[in-house]
């Protein structure tokens, strides 16, 4: 029983809700490494990102991404977002990799730009392993979201600790 208690005590209880939140314009794009045009994120991934922003004291307000899709440059895309208030552009690039021991490996490359007091950006890779041949970029992104959320949280908290600590639960 002591061991069980220790394990439960060590477990991450997960984020809890914050109080009043600041509206933030959010645009999310998912692209693959071929000629197919970028698309909006699947709903499950958008919901996960909104939850992450909620933990940061922001309320996600989705932006229509259709005008952003023809643009290739991430900075140009970001310039199309509303010019006032916090704004986020998160572009995920999904790439199908070599199967490893029967699992279908994908790499999700995330490039995020956000504007609070200033404009900052980050990028990172998240690997996921799926068990279906026909799983596509949408499924790969959804599978990557738990890690994507954590990486974004860590990025924001490490770059503006004082502002966020005030909003954090």
């Amino acid at each position: 029983m002591v061991l069980i208690g220790l394990l439960l005590a060590c477990a991450d209880a997960g984020p809890s809700a914050a109080g009043d939140r600041v509206p933030a314009a959010v645009a999310t794009l998912l692209q693959t490494v071929d000629a197919r045009p970028a698309t909006a994120w699947p709903e499950a991934a958008d919901v996960a990102l909104a939850s992450t922003l909620s933990g940061l004291g922001q309320h996600a307000q989705p932006v229509d991404v259709a005008p952003l899709i023809p643009l290739r440059d991430v900075d140009q895309r970001f310039e199309r977002l509303p010019e006032s208030g916090p704004a986020w552009l998160v572009v995920a690039t999904a790439r199908s990799e070599r199967e490893v021991l029967g699992r279908f490996r994908w790499t999700i490359h995330v490039h995020a730009i956000r504007r609070d007091a200033a404009v900052t950006s980050t990028s990172f890779d998240v690997p996921v392993h799926l068990d279906r041949f026909s799983d596509d970029a949408d499924e790969a992104l959804v599978a990557a979201m738990p890690t994507v959320e954590r990486r974004l949280l860590r990025w924001v908290r490490s770059s503006t600790p004082s502002e966020l600590e005030a909003d954090a639960p």
């Binding site: 490494v33 071929d34 197919r36 045009p37 970028a38 290739r72 990799e97 070599r98 490893v100 490996r105």
Partner: peptide
């Protein structure tokens, strides 16, 4: 298992240009 890839010609979003990689 360590699986390594090196892109000689990396695939790019929005492009159908030839690609090549070493595994």
């Amino acid at each position: 298992v360590l699986d390594l890839r090196y892109d000689v010609l990396p695939p790019e979003p929005g492009s159908d240009a030839p690609t090549s990689s070493l595994h």
